[in-house]
């Protein structure tokens, strides 16, 4: 039986995952199957457990119960750096760059292995975000909010990943910047599988193909984005739109 479980076909699979932060029971049995290809969106109200799900997957929060499989391998007990080396990238929320480091140093940090391949990749990424090239030597903390978010995403792209976890990239950005961000995300998801936590429904609709809605630490809905967009009652109940 265990052998059967170990060889799940999907890219990422959560089985009844529970996570506690201090005394608080945040994830109360999250189960989801995420297939390769495209972008999957995690939706839900504030405090529903979206960010906690990403952090649990990445190993940044200890899972108290349940199993997580990535490419068929169990990772719920693995350390974050082990999971990262397996090919999972993570962009934390709130424009997570290292603000005391320069843009160049931020990229150097994210090149886990520095070789020709990653340098070529870096050149590609900089073509995607030309603004970052302009401020190459500037401290990341001095960039504008939009630029910082771009850097946060760009620095993860430098390495080869099979799955990217991106946490609320549009938070606190001006609408025009969000549009640019959407374009970049669409380009990214064509090459790499993305799991995106997003509150901005318009952005989610532009980028995502299917979605999960989390509510009170459990999965309340799973299906294609279009289906959700039509279901006004569901939208009202879980997203308040």
């Amino acid at each position: 039986m265990p052998d059967m479980v170990e060889t799940k076909p999907s890219l990422l699979c959560l089985e009844n995952v529970h996570t506690h932060i201090d005394q608080h029971h945040i994830l109360q049995g999250v189960s989801m199957d995420v297939a390769a290809g495209g972008a999957t969106i995690l939706l839900g109200r504030n405090g529903a457990g979206k960010s906690t799900t990403l952090k649990s997957v990445m190993g940044l929060l200890p899972v108290s119960q349940g199993r997580i499989f990535f490419n068929g391998q169990a990772i719920e007990a693995s350390k974050p750096y082990e999971i990262a080396r397996m090919g999972m990238g993570f962009v934390p929320e709130d424009k997570a760059v290292l603000s005391t480091l320069t843009v160049a140093e931020n990229f150097r940090l994210s090149m886990f292995r520095e070789n020709e391949k990653t340098h070529k990749k870096l050149a590609e990424v900089l073509d995607l975000f030309p603004a970052l090239k302009k401020f190459w030597k500037r401290q990341a903390g001095l960039l504008s909010g939009g630029q910082r978010q771009m850097l946060a995403i760009a620095r993860v792209l430098v390495c080869e990943h099979t799955l990217l976890l991106i946490d609320e990239p549009s938070k606190g950005l001006a609408p025009i910047v969000v549009d640019q961000l959407a374009e970049s995300l669409i380009q990214i998801k064509d090459k790499t599988k993305v799991i995106l936590v997003e509150q901005n429904f318009r952005l989610a609709q532009q980028v995502g193909s299917d979605c999960f809605i989390l509510d009170d630490g459990r999965v309340a809905f799973n299906g294609p984005m279009d289906e959700l967009a039509k279901d006004k009652i569901m939208m009202k109940k879980y997203l308040g739109i």
Partner: peptide, 8 residues
């Protein structure tokens, strides 16, 4: 968090 998630 970022350093860990980058693979170090």
């Amino acid at each position: 968090e970022i350093v860990k998630a980058t693979g170090y």
